[in-house]
């Protein structure tokens, strides 16, 4: 299972990197989103992969290997919210730029051929 997740994250991140190197703003924003998905998954599995186990309990003196790590879950929630907000902000910027410059090139003008 570790291998599958690792490969998935790798593919997501690599696609993201490829897309942000493209010249159109739409490609860049999709690239950013893929990268942030990859990063969120990455944070999540840093608490080790567990299946069907609760993060919290009310009993004391527990065996911690029987529980999922709650810290990474909290971290990833925050990271998702922040990433979502900043990506939305970039989307607005992208549309403004498209409206004001008339092109969706990242430089704000078409390259001269």
């Amino acid at each position: 299972m570790e291998a599958i997740i690792a490969i998935a994250i790798g593919i997501l991140f690599a696609s993201g990197v490829w897309l942000i190197l493209r010249p159109r703003t739409f490609q860049v924003i999709i690239g950013l989103m893929l990268m942030s998905y990859a990063v969120n998954l990455f944070i999540f599995i840093m608490g080790r992969l567990t299946v069907n186990q609760p993060p919290l309990t009310t009993t004391r003196n527990i065996d911690s290997s029987q529980f999922a790590d709650p810290v990474t879950q909290a971290l990833v929630l925050t990271a998702i919210v922040i990433g979502f907000a900043t990506t939305a902000l970039y989307l607005v910027l992208l549309l403004t730029s498209r409206g004001l410059t008339g092109t969706d090139h990242v430089d704000g003008r078409e390259p001269r051929l």
């Binding site: 971290l75 990506t87 970039y90 910027l93 730029s97 410059t101 990242v106 430089d107």
Partner: peptide, 25 residues
């Protein structure tokens, strides 16, 4: 300013992703 911001925002979003990877490790 919009042109400069587009690059500034993208660079900082990428830097934030890298920041998170570092924190996770």
């Amino acid at each position: 300013r919009i042109r400069a911001s587009m690059q500034y925002v993208v660079i900082n979003l990428i830097a934030s992703s890298i920041f998170l990877i570092g924190i996770a490790l």
